[in-house]
Amino acid sequence: MVVKSQESRAIKNEDDIAVVRSSVKRVVALLNFSLVNQTKIITAASELARNVLEHGGGGEARIELVDEGDRVGVRLSFEDLGKGIPDFDKAMEDGYTTGKGMGLGLGGAKRLMDEFSITSNSPSGTKVSITKWQERI
């Protein structure tokens, strides 16, 4: 897998969530994603950016264009310096929340994307990576 471009956005307040959204939108528009897939990617980015802010007290989003030869994709990584996640299974459940949201963030983002990975060095921060692929025909 080759990373063709990469940019980072800091997430410190609510306005940064919108900044992350529009950056993701710009990158996604470069690939041939359908409108539905574009919406899914931007929505997943919004969910995870909000997680970084609400549960991790801020952090960073990294947006990458990746290339695997017969498919291209967008990979988004969200890293915070919060307390980490003590119980993964619980966190992935729909409706489970420690914040004030609907508890759909992690599970929802996973359903919207093709790949999902999460690493948490409890008690020192969480990193969530999501990827969506587009076949090259």
Partner: peptide
């Protein structure tokens, strides 16, 4: 509501 949003919201669980 646009179709793309309706599909995304359903997938998200809203």
């Amino acid at each position: 509501m646009q179709p793309a949003i309706a599909i995304t919201m359903t997938e998200l669980g809203i």
